[in-house]
Simulated scan of single mutants.
Amino acid sequence: MASQPNNPLHGVKLEQILMELQAHYGWEYMGYTINIRCFTHDPSIKSSLKFLRRTPWARTKVEQMYLQMLEKNN
C-alpha cells in the first residue's frame, strides 16, 4: 500500500473523526453547521456512522469540517 504523507485523512477512521468533532464542537454546533438529521435529532455516534457510510455528500462535509478543525488547532 502506498504511503500518503500529504493526506491528513489517511488512516483515520470515520468513527474517530466523529468522536473528535463531537468532543470539540458538540452535537448542537455540528447540527447547525451541517444540517443533517443524525446530528440534530437524538444524535449518536452509531446513527451518524450508519448515515454517513451510506451518504457520500454528507461524509464529505464531515471530513471537511474535521480538516478545518485540524487546521485551526495547528
Rank of each mutant, 00 (worst) to 15 (best):
S48Q: 03
T40S: 11
D42Q: 03
K61M: 15
Y29I: 12
L21H: 12
L52T: 01
G26S: 06
R59E: 13
P43K: 03
E71K: 13
M69T: 10
E63N: 09
V62M: 07
L70C: 08
E20Y: 03
P8A: 06
Y32Q: 11
W57E: 10
K61S: 14
K46Q: 13
K61Q: 15
M69N: 09
R59D: 04
Q64T: 15
E28H: 03
I34F: 02
Y32K: 09
C38Y: 12
A58M: 03
Q4W: 03
M69E: 11
T60Q: 14
L18S: 01
S48K: 02
D42L: 02
I17D: 00
N74I: 05
E15L: 04
Q22M: 02
L9A: 11
L70V: 13
V62G: 00
A23L: 06
Y32A: 09
V12N: 01
P8K: 03
D42E: 05
L14Y: 02
G31L: 05
K50T: 11
D42T: 05
L21P: 00
L14D: 01
T60R: 09
H41F: 09
M19P: 02
K72S: 11
Q64S: 13
T60L: 09
I45G: 12
K46R: 12
Y66S: 01
E28W: 01
M30D: 10
T40C: 06
C38Q: 11
I17T: 00
L21C: 15
I34E: 04
E20N: 11
F39K: 04
E20G: 09
Y29H: 09
M69P: 01
L14E: 02
V62R: 00
I45C: 15
M30L: 15
T60N: 10
K72I: 06
M30K: 04
N73L: 11
I34N: 04
T33P: 01
T40N: 07
L18Y: 01
S44V: 11
L14M: 14
N7R: 06
V62N: 00
G26E: 09
E71N: 08
S44K: 06
K46F: 07
F51H: 10
D42S: 04
K46Y: 05
I34Q: 03
R59W: 01
L52E: 00
M69Q: 10
N74L: 08
E71V: 07
G11L: 08
V62Y: 01
I36D: 11
T55N: 13
W27V: 13
T55W: 04
L52W: 00
T33L: 06
H24G: 01
L14V: 13
Y29T: 13
T60V: 10
K13W: 03
P56I: 12
Q64F: 07
T33Q: 08
L21M: 15
P8T: 07
R53H: 14
N7F: 06
A2T: 10
I17G: 00
A58N: 06
S3V: 06
P8E: 07
V62W: 00
M69Y: 07
G31D: 08
T40K: 04
R54W: 03
Q68L: 13
P5N: 10
V12Y: 02
M65K: 12
R53C: 11
R37V: 10
N35C: 05
F51C: 07
V12H: 05
R59C: 11
S48V: 01
D42H: 02
E63Q: 12
M19T: 15
L70T: 09
T55D: 14
C38E: 15
Q64G: 13
C38A: 13
G26A: 07
I36R: 09
W57P: 05
